[in-house]
């Protein structure tokens, strides 16, 4: 009983502190998925235009971001970019976090948008061209509305990936959920396991509904065969 009271005391004390961290996690993940989606959308559409050098360039960009761990990318944005001696690349930790996470997100979004556009039957674009639409009109009125609907389920999965990646930001001292937990552990080192479990539960209740939504959206909007986890 005393054990239970002690743990309840910890929960009571730490919840507001950890919620603060969760709020930062929420903010960073929303900003990152916003910018990452814009960049990814543009690159994804450009990739489907099938202009050879452009496609190669975008593929190289994707391989660079997919081939290295996010931790390394974060260190490069935070520690290496300032050494270029360009003032606007001299990020503080929050900007570095958002920039690196947005770039990382964009690599997923590009792939999703391109796959969704390719998943629209070619008859659709041929038909719209043959009724006299320009290529841009065909994209704007026929292809993109159909494709974007199909991106909803995998985009929800990407959002979960972004949330989970924010945990890595604790290494550059962003006060998000994991970092707040580590600070709490410095105050209560005896309850290290309990506090980490508490953080895991916070993440779970944040990510799980989004994953369920993704699964539901797949039955609602159809799958394009990209299975992100």
């Amino acid at each position: 009983m005393e054990w239970f009271a002690h743990k309840w005391d910890i929960i009571d004390q730490l919840t507001p502190f950890l919620l603060q961290g969760l709020w930062t996690t929420f903010k960073i993940s929303i900003v990152a998925i916003f910018f990452g989606s814009i960049l990814g959308f543009v690159l994804g559409v450009l990739k489907t235009l099938q202009i050879y050098p452009l496609e190669k360039l975008i593929n190289t960009y994707l391989h660079l971001l997919r081939g290295s761990p996010y931790l390394v990318q974060l260190y490069i944005v935070y520690f290496v970019f300032p050494s270029f001696n360009i003032s606007w690349l001299n990020f503080d930790s929050f900007t570095a976090a958002v920039v690196s996470l947005s770039l990382y997100t964009s690599s997923y979004v590009t792939e999703i948008v391109a796959s969704a556009i390719f998943a629209v039957p070619t008859g659709q674009s041929e038909a719209s061209r043959s009724v006299g639409m320009t290529k841009a009109q065909a994209y704007r009125y026929v292809i993109l509305p159909q494709a974007l609907k199909m991106t909803i389920p995998p985009m929800a999965s990407v959002y979960v990936i972004v949330i989970k990646s924010t945990a890595v930001l604790s290494v550059i001292g962003i006060a998000e959920l994991t970092r707040q937990g580590e600070v709490a552990i410095m105050r209560m080192p005896g309850d290290i396991m309990f506090i980490y479990s508490l953080i895991a539960i916070f993440y779970f209740f944040y990510c799980f509904p989004v994953l369920r939504f993704s699964k539901w959206a797949e039955t609602r909007f159809g799958s394009i065969g990209i299975d992100l986890k």
């Binding site: 989970k164 945990a167 994991t178 396991m193 980490y196 895991a200 993440y203 779970f204 990510c207 799980f208």
Partner: peptide, 22 residues
């Protein structure tokens, strides 16, 4: 499966690292 998918790897590593010896 759901528990692993919904929590960050870093937290899982910490939990195993500090929890396993106990």
């Amino acid at each position: 499966i759901q528990a692993i998918r919904s929590t960050p790897l870093l937290i899982q590593i910490y939990l195993i690292y500090y929890g396993l010896p106990a």
